[in-house]
Amino acid sequence: MLRIIAVRVVLGLLTLLGVSILIFAATEILPGDVCTAIQGQGATPDTLRVCRIELGLDRPSYVRYTEWFFNALHGDFGLSLTNKRDILKSISPKFVNTLFLAGYAALIAVPLAVGLGILAAINEGKWIDKVANIVSLAAISVPEFFIGYLFILFLAVRNHWFPSLSTVFSDMSFGERVYVTALPAVTLTLLVTAHMLRMTRSSVLAIMSQPYIEMAFLKGLARARVIMVHALPNAAAPIITVIALNLAYLVVGVVVIERVFTYPGVGAFMIDGVSKRDLPVVQAGGLVFAGAFVLLNTVADVLGVLVNPRLRRAKTGT
């Protein structure tokens, strides 16, 4: 078992390495570099050459990549070009904000999706199944910014129940934060629920046709017990994978929502970086997102091994 898990972790690290190369290469092929960005209109070939030598940009790209990657591993993402501040220091509070919002949405979405998915599976074809499917599909089909603006219009502007801006500050209490970020969290919930719900439903249904489920019914067990005790543990692996993908999406894919609600997360930070051509910031943001994505999926893989007795009790060496 340890071996299987070790393999997953190593694969995750390799993925991260590959992604870091991609990020670096992508910023490398963009027209212009840091020096043209700093000097803007006033650049002459001479000043550019001096600047590049100063920043070490004249060295071959693989040397700069290695340096960048190893520094990043130590938490050193370099300095922002626009305000000369340490990127790590400016990105970490934003990352905490992003995690807060993602965690908030996940706490609502995951139990909701899995619960409704199971309910839909138990009542396959009945009204609750149909309603759950239609509502979740409708929610995923409408663009997220549209839902966001609808919420702002009805719940913030017309009724003043919630604030329309979700800007959080470091001196806010936990309760205040929860209140202020309720709208973006609910918007995100609507976004990710459908996928998890449908996966839960179909995994549970697929397991329900197995002979050991028939056996469980013939043992005289109640339907609820058959599903919770006999079907769910076997349906867990695909559900966990989809949950992880959606959690990763909550961390990575919230850029638009952060904009709509002017929420100070990594996404908004990265967009600023792009518009200002602050390449080190963009690279750092990309790397943080990739890291979160790979981490969540690796955790899902490991959990998938742990819930399967065949893999959990596998003899090492085979």
Binding site: P211, Y212, E214, M215, L218, G220, H230, P233
Partner: peptide, 19 residues
């Protein structure tokens, strides 16, 4: 079911829950 009348299936491998 199970209490007065119990069932034994052909494939034990498929009828036992692997989890």
């Amino acid at each position: 079911r199970g209490k007065r009348i119990a069932y034994i299936a052909q494939s034990a491998a498929a009828s036992f829950n692997p989890a």
